[in-house]
Amino acid sequence: MSVVFLCPGQGQVPRDLGDLVRASGDDLAAAFEARLGPEAFDDPLADYARQQAALVAIGVGRARRALEVLAEPEHAATFGEVVGVAGHSLGEITALFVAGALDGPGAVRLAAERGQAVQDARVPEWEEAGMLALSGPTVHDHIEALLAEHGVELANDNAGDQLVAVGRSEALAALGSQARELGLRAVRLETTGPSHSSYMLPVVAPLADAVHVAGLTEPRIPFWSGLTARRAVDPPTEIGRLIAERVRWRETLLDLVGVLHPTHFLDIGPGGAMARLARKTVPEVAAHTLDELDP
């Protein structure tokens, strides 16, 4: 028996974000306040640094709870040892905590630096960009032609039937119409910026620097990279580059299973999107959510 932890990225940002950060853990809330100021609790969506730090604080708090729950005898026998961890996009910072490469407050500070690097790189052109989720059983068959025709990029390969494109809003609207004609679903996502695309190239170096400065220690639990879909060999460089490249989540799950052969996945949440994606890609591994184990 063994389990791999899955850490979500930005997903759907809860409305009560500030309260959730306060409840995430005293040390995490203190790190959040020390870096961003007490006013950040009241308006955590005001900028990227606050938002990303808040989400990682919540993620780390949930990861700690997940580790406690799995240590309980009824679950310890079922799940066994934590043998690996991966995070989707921003979730990689939470995953570094799970891996033991960064402590909780360090993860919150690094998320704030990531958000700040994105904030500093922001240009008016981003206002005209967005992200579009494409889904359907044939989405992978059509994607290359759609991307080429509309001049947009692939931001996330989430599953065999789910991808996310990023680009100019006008181009995404045209792509969405064409995708629907092909029998695909196309849903515009509310996002904080055109992540995982060439729009983010100016963020790569500052983010890699921030990861270096954070002073990662050698992961105790193997950490998989969404950039390479392999076990990370150079986390600062890989995390830096991922912000401007596609998240290879589907391939990450396949590689994790191929290498580690876990019997279970645990999506630490909030929500259960990572567990759902895992069930689609590797249905032979039982995927659970923390909320299901700890209602």
């Binding site: 997903g11 759907q12 989720a133 889904s135 789910q162 679903r185 849903v187 515009r188 996502l189 509310e190 929500g271 999107a273 759902r276």
Partner: peptide
């Protein structure tokens, strides 16, 4: 019902 369904439903 997945998160994309919820996004589209909200819209």
């Amino acid at each position: 019902i997945d998160s994309l369904d919820i996004v589209e439903l909200s819209q």
